[in-house]
Nucleic acid binder design. Structure first.
Length: 307
DNA sequence: GGTATAAGTAATGAGCTGGA
DNA sequence: TCCAGCTCATTACTTATACC
């Protein structure tokens, strides 16, 4: 089966268990078959059903690739997504992306009714190959052009995970040259090759844990995560309540005058840029260093107008 | 350049055992 | 009784090579 085929099956399994928790093996098998017919998938092997043994392997791979735990309940006589996983925001986001993908697949003749955002290539053509390399523990090589540097450099990497931030995809992995875990934007990556060399996935590496206090793509700065307190005007606060800035977001005050929230994150440049984008609709209350940085940036912007 | 074939690799299923 | 997890054999797919 193609790489696309089995990844598709993983996502269909997750979707079925999300809609109908405690589905039996036979129900899962029937659903995959129906969806393949409905979506007119060309992969014959995918539409031929699959065995229990394959389902067991899929559950293991889904746990590894997506961080979702699927278990069998003897009491309910069916498979289900464990509660802690079902609340995972990444899981929700992934399923939304899957739905969009399916809809666009079906809507190829409906171009007159779709108005898509015009933007440059995001490097998503590498997603399948990279997921395949991560799943099969294969080292990769590619050419990379840094955002601030036009020269190309060849990289040798142990790929560990993929991360999305602001509609862009990033690869997380260990640079074999210096042993450090780094991030690479997929849109700046070319000549990707999956090598024959295998690597051992580090037991102590957990992508959810490593990104827990990160805002954006930049990793831990070496500092401890800080408590960032932000005060939004009510209008902006409504957006922030429906689209939280970070999984750690807690509401401290919610009145007709302000929405005050607390985040626990590393104070990165990505965070600063995000806070500045809210302009006068946001006041940073803590920590002091971040307040000073935001003040300085606004002052410099003010000075540029020569007022 | 296109096609046929071989070899290597990945995905899968069958059958078995252990455990809840 | 049924599921999880293991080994091993089979099948499908991919890639390289030879030939026309």
């Amino acid at each position: 089966m193609s790489k696309k085929g089995y990844l598709y099956r993983y996502l269909l399994l997750i979707k079925k268990l999300k809609m109908n928790p405690y589905s039996s093996f036979e129900e899962l098998q029937r659903y995959i078959d129906q969806q393949c017919t409905y979506l007119l998938l060309q992969d014959d092997r995918l539409s031929m059903g699959f065995s229990k043994r394959t389902l067991q392997r899929d559950i293991r791979e889904i746990r590894m690739l997506f961080g979702l735990d699927i278990a069998y309940s003897h009491a309910q006589r069916g498979y289900h997504i464990c509660e802690s996983s079902a609340e995972n925001r990444n899981f929700q986001r992934m399923m939304e992306a899957f739905d969009v993908f399916n809809s666009l697949n079906l809507a190829q003749d409906l171009a007159p009714y779709l108005h898509l955002e015009q933007r440059s290539a995001q490097g998503t053509e590498h997603l399948y190959s990279l997921l395949h390399a991560i799943k099969n523990r294969r080292c990769i090589t590619f050419d990379y052009r840094k955002f601030w540097d036009e020269t190309l450099s060849q990289r040798h990497l142990e790929p560990y995970a993929l991360k999305e931030f602001k509609s862009r995809w990033y690869l997380l992995g260990k640079d074999i040259r210096d042993g450090r875990i780094k991030r690479f934007g997929l849109d700046r990556l070319t000549r990707l090759k999956i090598s024959e060399n295998r690597f051992v996935y580090p037991e102590d590496y957990n992508v959810q844990q490593s990104q827990r206090y990160c805002f954006g793509i930049m990793g831990a700065t070496g500092d401890q995560p800080q408590e960032v307190v932000l005060s939004f005007v009510p209008f902006q606060g409504n957006y922030i309540k429906t689209l939280p800035l970070h999984p750690s977001q807690e509401i401290l005050v919610d009145t007709s005058d302000e929405l005050r929230i607390k985040l626990t994150v590393y104070p990165t440049q990505d965070l600063l840029m995000e806070l500045l984008s809210y302009g006068p609709r946001l006041k940073v209350l803590a920590p002091e260093e971040l307040v000073a940085q935001v003040k300085q940036a606004h002052q410099e912007a003010f000075n540029r107008y020569g007022i």
